[in-house]
Amino acid sequence: MLEITTTRHNPLIDPQLHVWGWEIPLYLFVGGVVAGMMVIAGLAMLRTAKGEDTARFFSVQTPLLAFVLLNVGMLALLLDLAHPLYVWAVYLTFEPASPMSWGSWVLLLVYAILLVSALVRLHEAWPWLGRTLPAVERWSDAITRSPARLALLGWMNVVFGVAVGIYTGILLNTMVARPLWNTSVLPVLFLVSGVSAGAAAMHLASRFFGRRPAPQGLVAGFLSALAQPLGPQPPEKSTVDTLIRADVALLALELVLLALLVLGMLTSTASHAAAAALVLGGPYTLAFWGAIVVAGILVPILLQSLELSRRIPHTVLPALLVLAGGYVLRWVMVNAGQASEIVQAAAR
């Protein structure tokens, strides 16, 4: 028997670490969605630069939606800070050993890349912008009419999209004190889950808003531009099918990564095995298997496969489930990860 008692009683630390509440899971989820949308939009830009007509696919509203989501995520990150007014201190230094320092600087670059990507051709969907700021129209044309510039923007979206997706996992993965996070599978899992959720978010937005005629003016024009992530016109069926097909493949990959994560934990040290027990009979079992694996991956794979083979009509249900599953994945990992700790050996 090993019985440990302590007189320590610090808030947020005892009896169990819980320094991160809803803000960090939300930020990690939104960061993943933004990463996914950047990768998908970047790939579409590269195809456009090669001369393919993907205008109806990528348009510029994907980066715009991603840009708005990025702001939501960064707001959540700010709200999590114990001293949000000091947030600028992050940008007075670069700490090469700190994943959060890397992430803060990458976020700054991503902010600029998404802003430029969103402004390119935005004036087409939001005429008010082109009328008020003719310069935006000139810069946009300078980029869209040069395949080399568009390809560069596309590559930046892909590279920094992958960087953000991986960063959301490395942030947790580098902490030796939390065995559930301390696995190299985590950054890849978060990246794949993020791209899958990004595809789902684009799919969802296209289903909700894609078929409305675009309103004009300042506010209505902006909102309608935001609400048409697949382009000013309704997306083609083949475009939506491509998104769904990619989503099914990514979900299957996510399933493999989740299995590797649990298997790796179970076969590692006693601390890692104890961390795996949190989702294998522990308090996070139902959320992990029910919400993430069944409702967030298996059911969407089934529904989307049936949709692709035209056995059932298209609905937004799979996209909603994928997004909900993506959030629950971050929620479980952040909370169960805080509950996991290095365990001490007992004689028996």
């Binding site: 001293h83 949000p84 700190s98």
Partner: peptide, 14 residues
């Protein structure tokens, strides 16, 4: 210190 709490999560000793 901005209070991001990464150091708290990274400390195995609490």
């Amino acid at each position: 210190c901005i209070g991001c709490k990464a150091c708290i999560a990274s400390c195995p000793y609490g």
